[in-house]
Deep mutational scan, measured.
Amino acid sequence: LTDEELVTMSVRELNQHLRGLSKEEIIQLKQRRRTLKNRGY
């Protein structure tokens, strides 16, 4: 997933992508998404 996709994707879509990932990967992705959102994309 690109940063842009992460930010513009709805939470529902995101959760579908996260299905099948490990807990660590999910946590990393969610942190990255929060960081991007805070940057004001």
Results as ranks from 00 to 15, higher is better:
residue 11 V to Y: 09
residue 14 L to M: 04
residue 1 L to H: 02
residue 29 L to K: 02
residue 21 L to A: 06
residue 19 R to C: 08
residue 35 T to I: 15
residue 29 L to R: 01
residue 34 R to V: 07
residue 32 R to N: 01
residue 22 S to F: 03
residue 20 G to L: 08
residue 8 T to I: 08
residue 37 K to S: 03
residue 15 N to V: 12
residue 10 S to M: 03
residue 35 T to R: 13
residue 35 T to M: 15
residue 7 V to Q: 07
residue 17 H to S: 05
residue 11 V to T: 10
residue 25 E to G: 04
residue 40 G to H: 13
residue 16 Q to C: 13
residue 12 R to Q: 13
residue 15 N to K: 13
residue 31 Q to C: 06
residue 36 L to E: 03
residue 24 E to S: 12
residue 33 R to E: 05
residue 39 R to L: 15
residue 30 K to M: 15
residue 37 K to W: 04
residue 25 E to P: 00
residue 38 N to F: 06
residue 16 Q to I: 12
residue 1 L to C: 05
residue 22 S to D: 06
residue 27 I to H: 11
residue 20 G to V: 05
residue 19 R to Q: 11
residue 25 E to D: 09
residue 27 I to F: 12
residue 15 N to I: 13
residue 29 L to H: 04
residue 14 L to N: 00
residue 5 E to V: 07
residue 33 R to P: 00
residue 35 T to V: 13
residue 12 R to N: 10
residue 23 K to E: 10
residue 15 N to L: 13
residue 40 G to V: 10
residue 21 L to D: 00
residue 21 L to H: 05
residue 18 L to I: 10
residue 2 T to V: 02
residue 27 I to E: 12
residue 3 D to S: 02
residue 39 R to N: 15
residue 3 D to I: 03
residue 6 L to T: 00
residue 7 V to S: 07
residue 9 M to S: 03
residue 11 V to M: 09
residue 26 I to E: 04
residue 34 R to T: 07
residue 18 L to T: 06
residue 36 L to R: 03
residue 28 Q to L: 13
residue 19 R to P: 03
residue 21 L to Q: 04
residue 37 K to L: 15
residue 8 T to N: 15
residue 11 V to P: 09
residue 7 V to G: 06
residue 30 K to Y: 13
residue 34 R to M: 06
residue 7 V to Y: 08
residue 33 R to Q: 08
residue 8 T to L: 09
residue 30 K to H: 09
residue 33 R to D: 02
residue 13 E to P: 00
residue 32 R to F: 01
residue 5 E to Q: 14
residue 25 E to F: 06
residue 22 S to Q: 06
residue 13 E to W: 02
residue 14 L to V: 03
residue 39 R to S: 14
residue 6 L to F: 00
residue 4 E to H: 15
residue 21 L to M: 12
residue 23 K to I: 11
residue 30 K to I: 15
residue 4 E to M: 11
residue 28 Q to T: 09
residue 23 K to T: 10
residue 18 L to Q: 02
residue 7 V to D: 04
residue 25 E to H: 07
residue 40 G to S: 11
residue 9 M to T: 02
residue 16 Q to Y: 10
residue 38 N to C: 15
residue 29 L to D: 01
residue 9 M to W: 00
residue 30 K to P: 00
residue 6 L to P: 00
residue 25 E to Q: 12
residue 32 R to E: 01
residue 17 H to C: 11
residue 34 R to F: 04
residue 21 L to F: 06
residue 41 Y to F: 13
residue 15 N to G: 06
residue 14 L to K: 00
residue 24 E to T: 10
residue 8 T to E: 09
residue 12 R to C: 11
residue 38 N to A: 08
residue 15 N to D: 08
residue 18 L to G: 02
residue 11 V to W: 15
residue 3 D to L: 04
residue 32 R to Q: 02
residue 12 R to P: 07
residue 14 L to P: 00
residue 2 T to N: 04
residue 38 N to G: 08
residue 12 R to G: 09
residue 24 E to R: 10
residue 16 Q to V: 10
residue 33 R to S: 03
residue 22 S to A: 08
residue 18 L to H: 01
residue 22 S to K: 07
residue 16 Q to T: 07
residue 29 L to C: 03
residue 21 L to E: 01
residue 40 G to T: 06
residue 3 D to M: 03
residue 26 I to T: 07
residue 31 Q to D: 10
residue 20 G to Y: 08
residue 23 K to S: 09
residue 1 L to Y: 04
residue 14 L to I: 05
residue 20 G to A: 06
residue 35 T to S: 13
residue 39 R to T: 13
residue 15 N to A: 11
residue 41 Y to M: 14
residue 7 V to H: 05
residue 33 R to N: 02
residue 28 Q to D: 09
residue 40 G to A: 11
residue 2 T to Y: 01
residue 39 R to P: 11
residue 39 R to F: 12
residue 34 R to I: 08
residue 28 Q to E: 12
residue 41 Y to H: 13
residue 37 K to V: 07
residue 29 L to Y: 05
residue 31 Q to K: 13
residue 11 V to A: 08
residue 23 K to R: 12
residue 10 S to I: 02
residue 30 K to C: 15
residue 26 I to W: 05
residue 12 R to D: 11
residue 29 L to F: 04
residue 5 E to T: 05
residue 9 M to I: 06
residue 29 L to N: 01
residue 17 H to Q: 05
residue 1 L to M: 06
residue 11 V to N: 13
residue 39 R to A: 15
residue 34 R to P: 01
residue 27 I to S: 10
residue 2 T to Q: 03
residue 28 Q to P: 01
residue 4 E to K: 08
residue 15 N to T: 09
residue 28 Q to G: 08
residue 32 R to S: 01
residue 19 R to I: 10
residue 26 I to D: 01
residue 34 R to K: 13
residue 17 H to E: 02
